[in-house]
């Protein structure tokens, strides 16, 4: 039923509520459509939450640490003087009497509190200096990232592995959706969709991905770690990791495999579609190879990383000497 049809159906409150329910469904459809087109990346909402958390009283971090420290400094002193100023004489006299009666005890307690708070603040300042030193050293150790056009490599071509990947992923497709990160031109997505499987892709932004989305494939503009962080636990039947796996840093790869283990359903598959290191060096050249924050790993190394988090490597497909597809399974819980 269209909105216009509903509007004509009546003017009572029940009709109005039905009409509004229809409008809300249309709003939800609009949001789904725009999310699929990458207008509303899930990582955007998460980043907003993280940003606001920085400003909450318990969420101080980064450059706001200094502000928090100043606030703590200001509140670390307890005033022993009772406010006795008043324009009304009687009230002032009463307050003064209260002050006389209580001041000696208040002074005794508050002096100890002030000792405690000043020593605590000294510790916090020392901690601030140490953290500052650490941050400076860390910034010197971390190389500046390369410009995107120098870092981005096309990633392994899935074409040599299409048939086998579609078959293997299709066998577990009843466990949830299949996600390819990064999906590039969408070759694998199209093959999975053609076989009737529910698959979508994410890509941080490339002309190939834009072209894939234009053909009707569900391709969202998002980064891999951010997107996986917002995917529900054990909600994916299959996770195909491509492109990004060739250039991530060690820390990013550790987070990636942890998120893969978290988001793939029991019995589901994790596929690493990677470039052989030797072939990669030949492709990108020595400058990019030497300066890149991360470089492709051998399939054996990926197998080691995935096995360490409890996945079982079930196949290493070698359809092309320049690449590999490593397939790992997340064990389903044993049934009695």
């Amino acid at each position: 039923m269209t909105t216009d049809d509903t509007a004509a159906a009546g003017t009572g409150e029940a009709d109005s509520r039905a009409y509004l329910a229809q409008v809300q469904r249309e709003i939800d459809d609009e949001v789904r459509r725009r999310r699929a087109a990458g207008d509303f990346p899930p990582s955007f909402e998460r980043k907003l939450d993280e940003l606001f958390a920085r400003f909450t009283p318990t969420g101080t971090s980064d450059d706001h640490f200094t502000d928090a420290l100043k606030l703590a400094d200001r509140s670390a002193y307890f005033d022993t003087k009772v406010p006795i100023g008043s324009r009304k004489t009687a009230k002032g006299a009463v307050r003064f009497a209260l002050w006389q009666a209580e001041a000696w005890f208040m002074n005794y307690v508050v002096t100890q509190l002030n000792h405690f708070s000043s020593s605590t603040m000294r510790v916090v300042h020392l901690l601030d200096e140490r953290v500052g030193d650490l941050e400076r050293e860390l910034s010197e150790l971390t190389p500046a990232p390369l410009p995107e056009e120098e870092v981005l490599s096309p990633g392994a071509d899935p074409a040599p592995y299409l048939e086998e990947l579609v078959e293997r992923l299709g066998a577990v497709a009843d466990r949830g959706r299949i996600l390819q990160a990064e999906c590039g031109a969408g070759t694998l997505l199209a093959a999975l969709g053609g076989a009737g499987h529910d698959a979508y892709g994410i890509d941080p932004g490339s002309s190939a991905a834009d072209a894939a989305a234009a053909t009707g494939l569900e391709v969202r503009r998002d980064d891999v770690l951010g997107h996986l962080g917002s995917v529900g636990p054990e909600s994916l039947a299959g996770l195909v990791l491509a492109g990004c796996v060739d250039r991530m840093s060690t820390a990013e790869r550790r987070r990636l495999v942890a998120l893969a283990e978290l988001t793939v359903a029991p019995g589901g598959l994790v596929v690493v579609l990677g470039t052989e290191p030797a072939a990669w060096e030949e492709t990108v050249g020595p400058v990019a190879a030497d300066l890149a924050p991360g470089r492709p790993l051998h399939p054996d190394t990926w197998a080691h990383l995935l096995t360490r988090i409890g996945l079982e490597v079930v196949a290493t497909l070698a359809g092309d000497p320049a690449s590999f597809a490593l397939v790992a399974s997340k064990r389903a819980p044993a049934t009695t």
Binding site: I27, E30, V31, R34, F44, E45, L48
Partner: peptide, 8 residues
């Protein structure tokens, strides 16, 4: 969520 409010 922000996208839903924006669309509404």
């Amino acid at each position: 969520s922000p996208p839903v409010v924006a669309a509404a």
